[in-house]
Computed example of a mutant assay.
Amino acid sequence: MRVVVHVDGGARGNPGPAAAAAVVTDAASGAELDEATRYLGDSVTNNVAEYHGLLLGLERARAVGADEVEVVNDSELIAKQVNGEYKVKHPDMKALHAEALAALSSFSSWSIRSVPRAKNADADALVNQALDAAAL
């Protein structure tokens, strides 16, 4: 089964309180199959949160039985690092990058691309909902 996974991560402050989110849809029909959020803590950077969004999305894609995944995010940095176009220099991100590549390798095919934030609105909204809930 092929899915599209919209992922996002964000921190309020950099570092600051952060969350990750993913929305999994069927690639053929566009029907939503799953969504998830995860609060990441009170002192996380935006880029680390973005990687956690990617990892959460891959976890949820696997949980719904996907064997092919198209990842859509709004972080050009993460997409280009995963695609091998940019080097990963930050120590915290090196481990997350390696974990993401390992998770992606479990799919028969995968791709990742970045889009403007407006085209990733559902995942972005879930990140903000998780951050708002944590602030209560």
Score class of each variant (00 low, 15 high):
residue 20 A to K: 01
residue 118 A to Q: 12
residue 69 V to N: 06
residue 52 H to A: 14
residue 86 Y to S: 02
residue 10 G to F: 00
residue 12 R to K: 13
residue 93 M to F: 05
residue 11 A to Y: 02
residue 118 A to M: 05
residue 80 K to V: 00
residue 15 P to W: 07
residue 19 A to E: 03
residue 112 I to Y: 05
residue 50 E to W: 08
residue 108 S to T: 15
residue 70 E to L: 10
residue 28 A to T: 13
residue 79 A to S: 14
residue 67 D to F: 06
residue 96 L to I: 11
residue 70 E to V: 11
residue 98 A to I: 07
residue 103 A to C: 08
residue 102 A to V: 05
residue 54 L to H: 02
residue 49 A to K: 03
residue 115 V to P: 05
residue 112 I to E: 00
residue 69 V to I: 08
residue 104 L to N: 01
residue 10 G to Q: 11
residue 113 R to C: 04
residue 86 Y to M: 02
residue 35 E to G: 01
residue 89 K to A: 06
residue 77 L to A: 11
residue 77 L to G: 04
residue 70 E to K: 06
residue 99 E to D: 15
residue 32 E to K: 14
residue 98 A to T: 15
residue 96 L to V: 08
residue 81 Q to I: 03
residue 90 H to V: 07
residue 73 N to I: 05
residue 33 L to Y: 05
residue 110 W to K: 03
residue 128 N to H: 12
residue 120 N to I: 06
residue 58 L to W: 06
residue 31 A to M: 11
residue 77 L to W: 02
residue 49 A to N: 10
residue 72 V to T: 02
residue 51 Y to H: 05
residue 76 E to T: 13
residue 63 A to V: 08
residue 123 A to P: 00
residue 37 T to P: 03
residue 83 N to T: 14
residue 82 V to F: 06
residue 136 L to N: 12
residue 41 G to M: 07
residue 84 G to C: 09
residue 135 A to F: 09
residue 76 E to C: 01
residue 104 L to Y: 06
residue 119 K to M: 10
residue 117 R to M: 10
residue 134 A to V: 05
residue 8 D to F: 09
residue 40 L to K: 03
residue 47 N to M: 07
residue 56 L to W: 04
residue 80 K to W: 06
residue 2 R to D: 12
residue 93 M to R: 09
residue 84 G to W: 07
residue 85 E to I: 10
residue 66 A to Q: 03
residue 89 K to T: 12
residue 41 G to H: 12
residue 89 K to S: 06
residue 122 D to W: 03
residue 59 E to F: 04
residue 78 I to N: 03
residue 47 N to D: 12
residue 21 A to G: 06
residue 12 R to E: 12
residue 8 D to R: 13
residue 9 G to Q: 04
residue 47 N to H: 12
residue 130 A to C: 10
residue 95 A to E: 13
residue 2 R to Q: 15
residue 102 A to D: 13
residue 108 S to I: 08
residue 106 S to V: 10
residue 35 E to A: 09
residue 64 V to T: 10
residue 24 V to K: 05
residue 33 L to P: 02
residue 34 D to C: 10
residue 78 I to S: 06
residue 95 A to C: 01
residue 7 V to C: 14
residue 104 L to C: 07
residue 105 S to H: 13
residue 74 D to V: 11
residue 100 A to D: 03
residue 65 G to Q: 12
residue 135 A to T: 11
residue 4 V to F: 08
residue 119 K to H: 13
residue 118 A to K: 14
residue 103 A to K: 15
residue 99 E to A: 15
residue 11 A to Q: 01
residue 65 G to Y: 08
residue 74 D to P: 06
residue 19 A to V: 07
residue 15 P to T: 09
residue 83 N to S: 15
residue 32 E to S: 06
residue 55 L to W: 02
residue 40 L to Y: 01
residue 63 A to H: 04
residue 131 L to V: 07
residue 117 R to H: 10
residue 114 S to V: 00
residue 45 T to H: 09
residue 46 N to E: 08
residue 55 L to D: 00
residue 21 A to K: 01
residue 33 L to W: 09
residue 8 D to T: 12
residue 105 S to W: 04
residue 62 R to M: 02
residue 76 E to H: 03
residue 81 Q to L: 05
residue 76 E to Y: 00
residue 57 G to C: 10
residue 61 A to G: 05
residue 3 V to D: 00
residue 56 L to N: 00
residue 97 H to I: 02
residue 70 E to C: 08
residue 50 E to H: 03
